[in-house]
Amino acid sequence: MKLLSQLLNGLNAGSIYALIAIGYTMVYGIAKMINFAHGDIIMVGAYIVWLAIAVLGLPVPLGLLIGVAACALLGILIEKIAYKPLRKAPPLAVLITAIGVSYFLQSASLLIFSSEKQTFPVTLALPSITLGELVIPGQTLLILIVTAVCMAALTFFINRTKAGSAMLAVSEDKDAAQLMGVNVNKTISMTFAIGSALAAVAGILFSSSYVYVYPTMGSLVGIKAFVAAVLGGIGSVPGAMLGGILLGLVESLSKTYISNQMSNAIVFGILIIVLLVKPSGLLGKSRPEKV
């Protein structure tokens, strides 16, 4: 029973990692860059929901919707302002800019909201389910369902819609996609919007279970989600899903059975081992560079 409930805990955390990891991997696939500000989108999303519901007193569903929409918009803005001018710049310049954007978002929220922790205004949960001795907490249930729905919708979008196939085409070859009539800029904006919207969903789920909202809340969870994306194979959406879930499971099991303090070390240790054995990640492609 202990094992089962720890597995559930792992799925819970892993779902959140997976939702965030998808954003990293989609942006990498299309823009060939790591958007280190992605983790901070989670924090911005949580603050906006807090503002909308706790400060402005808007109804909960509307507040959540505003949070997700605002993050999608923020993702588009960040790309347009910070990354688009650097599309032909060396990768190092883009990397430094991404770290800069991350600090900018954290510092801006520190100025606006101060370092004081705010309480997330809603607890989102379904009724708990009891199966014999095993109790599936309502929050976990909600997180699993929301994540499953998001992933199914995203998979459908990528594989079954025209905009999704444009995204695949741009991630493989921008020039060739353009020759097909795909608007590359619009497709990149769309990718940032989807990734950031998923990060906002993750931020809402995260804050709803961990209660507090504060300026640096996105850092560690963002880095771990990045690890999950690399573990699964950066650029691969199914890889990000798998990597996130695996990471959550490993973390939860090592916290319980090995050592609470060591759990992060174990998580990052596994990343190192996987990268040594399979540098392209679990589901990543290792294709020789085209000439």
């Binding site: 695949l168 085409a169 493989e172 070859d173 020039d175 060739a176 294709r287």
Partner: peptide
């Protein structure tokens, strides 16, 4: 039809 074909190899 670009030089080097530039098909979408993963699709």
């Amino acid at each position: 039809v670009p030089e080097g074909r530039r098909i979408f190899a993963d699709l």
